[in-house]
Design a protein around this nucleic acid. Structure first.
Lengths: 199, 199
DNA sequence: GCGGTTTAATAACGATCATTATGAAATTGA
DNA sequence: TCAATTTCATAATGATCGTTATTAAACCGC
């Protein structure tokens, strides 16, 4: 019963995702979002709720559709491969699209007006969850002898995340893929070796 | 001739600097700035120009007053000491003040509305200049035998900057000083050794 | 075709944005 | 003391912010 929706909700969400990716949460105005989605303002509100709700839906889609290299990395056999795959995945993601470089999930973490604080907290939590998954994976690796007894899984996870974040900043500053790959290689140079791995 | 200025321009700039540090360029409103400075709007305009000019002056002060650990690091005798001092300086800076963590110069790099593009470019250039200084220092270190022949100064500079940026993000996410120091230690673990330095 | 219901489009809402016009207060030189 | 000049505080500018009334159009079951 009632009139049918004339626009594709999925496409509208994709369009909003791209705008948020380029401009961040606060930098993206509702005018930007509706223009990119090709949809009038009230239609976006009825489909997604307000701007914050739209951003949260876009963020969820971003993680499941673009940050899928993290869960993929977690399943690799060794801690070193996990780290290498995560680094490579981040490089791909942050340099693949010339018109929206960097990482959507990092754009809004750093600063903003007071009213954006809930969104910033959500981004911080999402970041922490990714780090926790890496830490747990490295704890397992340590238990399996894949990392030495002296290794500290929490430090390795924090270090890896720091490099990932730093590369996201550099991607936004226009770094080439080659440069980022050299950075990743340098980051991996320190990786502690487990039993059966060369030094 | 004429009436005397009743507020301290230096103090007003310091106050604006702190606001920008907490909220970034776009997140800081002129109302925030005038309130922090204890000065009415037209007074700030007459003293500094518009918001962008005020931010640029605050940024310059930030570098000369708070990022002084970079020029200090550059004068240390070995490349490893340069890197270690830069990392420690960044940790101090990004965690020293509980009410404005992270790095002012990174807050605005990532994203924002179109009208903030000139500011973002200025931040990107400042970032690039810091990296260039590190690269030149590491080239000298290589020439002095302080870094091995296989070392790549550009990669080391990019890597070090990536870790610095990543730690700035993590500081904004509430990381403790201890955690960041563990990250820095891990980053230094990959550092190539020069002649006369143990492996 | 007709009520009931959902969406679409236009236009407006109050709030806040950065910026500035205006006129009173204060200081200097004459 | 008076004219010139600079800063002060109040208040207003037009623009844009996110969010909604409001009304017309399209669909369903009857």
């Amino acid at each position: 019963m009632g009139r049918h929706r004339e626009f594709d909700v999925e496409k509208a969400l994709d369009a909003a995702l791209c705008v948020f990716w380029r401009k961040g949460y606060e930098g993206a105005s509702y005018a930007d979002l509706t223009e990119a989605a090709g949809v009038e303002r009230p239609a976006l509100y009825s489909a997604f709720g307000n701007k914050e709700a739209l951003f949260r839906k876009a963020l969820a889609r971003y993680y499941e559709r673009y940050v899928d290299y993290i869960p993929a990395a977690l399943q690799l056999p060794t801690a070193r491969e996990v780290a290498a795959h995560a680094l490579q995945g981040a490089i791909d993601l942050t340099t693949r699209y010339p018109d929206h470089t960097g990482c959507l999930a990092i754009q809004g973490v750093l600063a903003g007006s007071d009213e954006a604080e809930p969104v910033r907290q959500a981004l911080i939590e999402a970041r922490a969850e990714g780090e926790a998954q890496l830490r747990e994976r490295f704890e397992r690796a340590k238990a399996e002898g894949d990392l030495p007894e002296t290794a500290r899984p929490d430090t390795l996870a924090a270090f890896l995340m720091a490099v990932l974040h730093g590369m996201a900043v550099q991607a936004k500053a226009g770094f080439s893929r080659d440069t980022l790959e050299a950075v990743a290689e340098q980051a991996l140079a320190t990786w502690p070796a487990g039993k059966g791995e060369g030094a």
